[in-house]
Computed example of a mutant assay.
Amino acid sequence: MSEITGYHAHVYFDADTQDLAQHICEEAARLFPVQMGRMHARPVGPHPRWSCQLGFAADAFDQVIPWLMFNRQGLTIFTHAETGDHLADHRDHALWMGELLDLDLSIFDKA
């Protein structure tokens, strides 16, 4: 098994839910040792919707994930491990809260 060095939770939103997503992300960063990324008002990387990344250490998982489960207010959240294998992390080492979406994993293809 690969070593998990941390996690990324991607909170998905659209124009109608952007304020809600920002509030949830800011609250998570206030309550926990979470690094809040930018609010991307367009799809970025493999993500099919607008999103904000929450980065946190492996030892914060048991605090952050339950909080997100109960406070996501209907937003979809994609969470993946950070092991250094980006394809496997996004494809095989992931959790979904809400709607399951198709990621564009082709960006991880090896040349």
Rank of each mutant, 00 (worst) to 15 (best):
G6C: 03
L100A: 15
A88Q: 07
K110Q: 15
A58D: 12
W96A: 06
F78W: 08
P46K: 09
R38V: 00
L75Q: 09
S2A: 06
M69S: 05
A57T: 05
G55I: 04
Y7W: 10
D102L: 10
K110A: 09
A111E: 14
F78G: 01
D16E: 13
S106W: 00
M97A: 11
L103Y: 13
W96H: 13
A58G: 12
A111M: 11
A57Y: 09
D109W: 11
V44F: 09
G74D: 03
H90G: 03
I107M: 14
D109Y: 10
I24R: 01
L105G: 07
Q53Y: 03
G74F: 06
R42N: 10
P46G: 14
I4H: 01
A94T: 04
V64Y: 04
L20E: 10
H40Q: 10
Q53S: 10
A41Y: 09
A88N: 04
D16P: 01
T76C: 09
H86M: 09
A29F: 13
L75G: 00
Q53D: 11
V11H: 00
Q22Y: 15
N71P: 04
D104R: 09
Y7R: 03
P48V: 12
E99K: 14
G45K: 13
E27L: 15
G37L: 06
R30T: 08
R72K: 12
R38G: 01
D19H: 12
L101P: 06
V34D: 04
A88V: 01
D85M: 03
M36G: 08
Y12T: 03
H93P: 00
E3T: 01
A81W: 01
D14I: 12
C25Q: 04
A21K: 11
D62M: 06
P48R: 05
V44Y: 10
Q73E: 13
Y7H: 11
M36W: 04
A9M: 13
H86E: 09
H47F: 05
R91F: 02
V44T: 08
Q18H: 13
G45V: 08
T5E: 00
Y7C: 05
I4C: 02
D89I: 00
D59M: 13
E99N: 15
K110W: 07
G84I: 02
G55F: 07
M97Y: 11
G37H: 06
D62K: 14
Y12N: 08
D62V: 09
G6F: 04
G37Q: 13
D16C: 01
W67Q: 10
D19Q: 15
H93F: 09
T17N: 00
Q18M: 14
W50R: 15
G55M: 09
S51K: 14
F13S: 03
L105V: 06
A28Y: 01
T76Y: 10
L87D: 00
G55S: 12
D109G: 02
T83R: 08
A28W: 05
T76N: 04
A81H: 01
P43I: 11
F32Q: 13
I77N: 05
L105Q: 01
S2T: 06
